[in-house]
Every structure is written in C-alpha cells, then in structure tokens.
Simulated scan of single mutants.
Amino acid sequence: MLFSDIRDFTSVAERLSPEDLVALLNTFLTPMTQEVMSRAGYLDKYIGDAVMAVFGAPVARADHAERGLSTALAMHAALARLQPSLRQFGVEQLQIGVGINTGDMVVGNMGSADRFDYTVCGDAVNLASRLEGLTKTYGVFCLVGAGTRAAAPASYRFREVDLVRVKGKGQPAAIFELLAGPGGAVAEYAALDRWTAALAAFRAGEFSKARAEWLAFQAENPDDPVVRLHLARLAGLGDTAPPDWDGVAVFHHK
C-alpha cells in the first residue's frame, strides 16, 4: 500500500478559486498517477489531494514492495519537475508525504448491496495511512513499515526512525525513512553510525549516551528534523528512564 498527500493543502486551497484549485489538483495528480500506473500499481482512489495505490493486486507480483518504493522515488522526482508549472496558480512550492506498508490485506469488491468498489482493507492498510500522516510529525518525505523494509532489495537504503504505537493499534511498529534507491535519492545523512547508536541507547533507557550520540549526529546534520524531535523528547525525559520504559512513541492522532 502507498498513500501520498500534499502538505498543508488546506492553506493552499483557501487562497485559490474553485476553478484554479481543480486545475492545480489535475496538474499535480496527473504525473503522480502516471508514476503509479507505469509500475503496474492499481490506483485505488483519490481522497481529495491524496493518492491511494496498491501494488501486488489485482495481479499478484512478487516484487510489489520494490514497485511501491520505486514509485515513491519517482513521485519525488516528478514533483521537483512539476514545481515551476505550479507558479501559475500562485503556489511557490508543494511538498508531499508518502507512507508505504507491506502486509496481509483483504482485496476485492467492498461496499453496500447497492454500490461497491474494488479496494483493500486490513490492519496493514491502516498502518500505511498512519505512516503517511507521520511524515508530517517527523518532517521526512517517506516513511515505510517493517514489512516493506524487509521486502526491499538491497539497492534501497533506509534509516530507522522510531518505534511507534499509532492511533488504533495496540502493538508498536518500527518505522523507517526511505533514503534512496536505484531511482534516485530523497535524503542523505552523515555519521549514520551515531544515529544507530543513539537509537539503541534510547531504547535501552541510556538517555545520557543517547543524548551525546544524537548531539554528535546533529552537529553533522544540523537541518535534520528527526534528530531535533528526539532531542526534544529527551529533554522532557531527563536522564533516568522510568520503570516501565519501552522506548515507544505513542500517537493519539491520525
């Protein structure tokens, strides 16, 4: 499953007439849809400015995870090419977030006795949607679930970002930032070994070590919003982990 969404679209929409808003959406959605379909993805639906796409159905494909990841990279590149044409609408720049997850889903016709659609349903679908939403919180382009990370070819690079419990789920899920693949790069960081060490120390409740490693990482990557988020979280925790510490970030919003 792949979900994508335009960042701060409400503020963009309120500045445009209905006619210009529709023209902007059509201009944006056309290349995004083409990137999905050119990789044999099924465009499930548009949800306003959001795109919901399925890989591996209705035709089963063993490389469905790679197709989804490749689509995300292609969307990133297509948006960069599209930016100059958006100025006709008074929009200097659009940003999008992408969430991808791999897992078991029910696929088929769903709805009522009077009307139905071919779509997908299941916990793995819900997590993909939550991951897209969390790209706003973490300030990254694309977040993927552990299933997608495990199924990805070695040519794709990731950074583990956090362990989260999202709204509607009881079990925590590891989330990963998509960095690069054969289709291009969306993010690059120095000193990733320090990031890995900081994350391990944080989960072990070794807050002083985690803080030192993240500060060193931040010195090499001063514009990274994720390290700022983790350091702010540490500032509120102090130096000693609580007795029930599990390192999981809990989110109550979508």
Rank of each mutant, 00 (worst) to 15 (best):
L43M: 13
A174M: 15
A77P: 01
S112K: 10
Q83A: 02
P222S: 00
G183W: 12
F202Q: 07
A210I: 14
A78H: 06
V164F: 06
F55G: 08
F158I: 05
V164L: 08
N126L: 04
A151T: 12
A173L: 09
A65P: 09
P18W: 07
V12D: 05
L21T: 14
A150K: 14
P18Q: 04
L21A: 11
G103E: 03
N26L: 05
Y118S: 09
A219K: 03
A154W: 07
G181H: 01
L29A: 04
F158R: 12
G68H: 09
Y118E: 14
A57K: 02
T240A: 10
A200P: 11
W214D: 07
D123C: 13
T119F: 04
V248Y: 03
P172Y: 10
G97H: 00
G90L: 15
L134F: 10
S38R: 15
A40L: 12
D223Y: 00
A216S: 12
A124N: 10
K254V: 09
G90V: 15
F141A: 01
Q83C: 05
N221M: 00
T135C: 06
P84R: 13
G236E: 00
M32A: 09
K167D: 04
N26C: 03
N221Q: 02
K254A: 09
G41F: 13
S112L: 05
E92A: 15
R39L: 11
S4T: 15
E188C: 05
A249W: 12
P222L: 00
G56D: 04
D117I: 09
A57S: 07
G103S: 08
Q95L: 09
D8P: 08
A241S: 06
D123V: 11
R159K: 11
F89A: 10
P243K: 01
I175A: 04
P153L: 10
V166Y: 01
E220M: 00
D44V: 15
F89D: 06
M105D: 03
D20M: 03
L192M: 11
G139Q: 05
V54A: 02
T137G: 08
G103N: 03
F251E: 00
P58L: 14
E213R: 02
G103D: 03
V98Y: 02
A77Q: 08
I47R: 14
D193W: 01
F158E: 07
P225S: 09
G99E: 01
V226K: 04
